[in-house]
Amino acid sequence: MKAGSEPWAVSLGPIIKIKNLQKSFDGIRAIDNLDLEITKNSITAIVGPNGAGKTTLFDVITGFTESDAGEMRINNTIITGRKPEEIVALGLARTFQIPRLFKNLSIRENLLLAYNNSADKLGDDEFEEKAKRVFEMIGVSIDLDKSADDLSYGQRRIVEIARCLMRNVEIILMDEPTAGLFQKARESIKQVIKKLKQAGKTIVIIEHDMEFVADACEHVIVMDEGKSIAKGKPNEVLKQKKVLAAYIGE
C-alpha cells in the first residue's frame, strides 16, 4: 500500500524526515551525517551545547543555508535545494534566536505581511478576524496598533509566534523561544507552545533550559558536533551519560 494517497496515511509518517544531511563551513562540519524524524503534532526539543549545529539545522531546513548532501522531506515532499519561499509555502514557519519583527511597522502590519501574501487589502475584515483568533489561540491580548519597536522582549517573541500563525502553518520551528526571558514570560511561552500542539501544530524548538524541555516537550533530540547523539523522551534522554558528557564537555 502506498502511503500518502489517503489523508490518514500521511499522519502516520513523520512530518519532517531528514537523511544523511551534511553541511560544512570552511571544512568544519556543522551538520555531520544527520538522520532525524519529527512526529506530526508533537513538541520536539533539539538540545545540545553551543556550536552543535542546531541553528544551522533550522537554516538548512528552511532553505536559508544550502546543504552539501543528504535529503530532507516535509510531508513526503523533497525540500532539499529549494528556496526559502518555496519551503515555507509547504506549511512551515520559523522564529529566530533574536526575534525578527519589522520594527518600524505596527503589530497589525507585521501580521498583515504574514497573512495571505498576494492579497492587496489593508484593514480587511477576514484579516482582523484571523488576527483575533490567533491571539485567542495563544491566549494573549495585545494592542495591534502598537509599534513593534515598543514591545518588550517577551512580547516580541509572542508576536513573532503570532505572525507565524497568520499563515496556514503546520510546522513551527522555534529557535530558543525562551532565551533572555524571565520566569513569567518563559511560562507564558510554554503555555503558548502547549496550545499550539492542542491546535494540531507540530513544534520543534531549540532549547537550553532543560527544565523547560522536560516539562513542555514530548521528544528530545540531542545534538553534538553536528550529529544526533541521543533521542527519546526527555526524562530518559537527559539522564544519559553521553548527553551529560556533551554538555559538560568531557
Binding site: F64, A89, R94, F102, L105, L113, R167
Partner: peptide
C-alpha cells in the same frame, strides 16, 4: 498599499520576509 508594506518589510528585515514566504 500592500505592495508598499512588502517594501517596508524588506527594509526592516529581509530574512524575516523570506521566512514568511516572500
Amino acid at each position: 498599499s500592500k505592495f508598499g508594506l512588502i517594501f517596508k518589510g524588506i527594509r526592516d528585515d529581509e530574512t524575516a520576509m523570506q521566512s514568511l514566504g516572500y
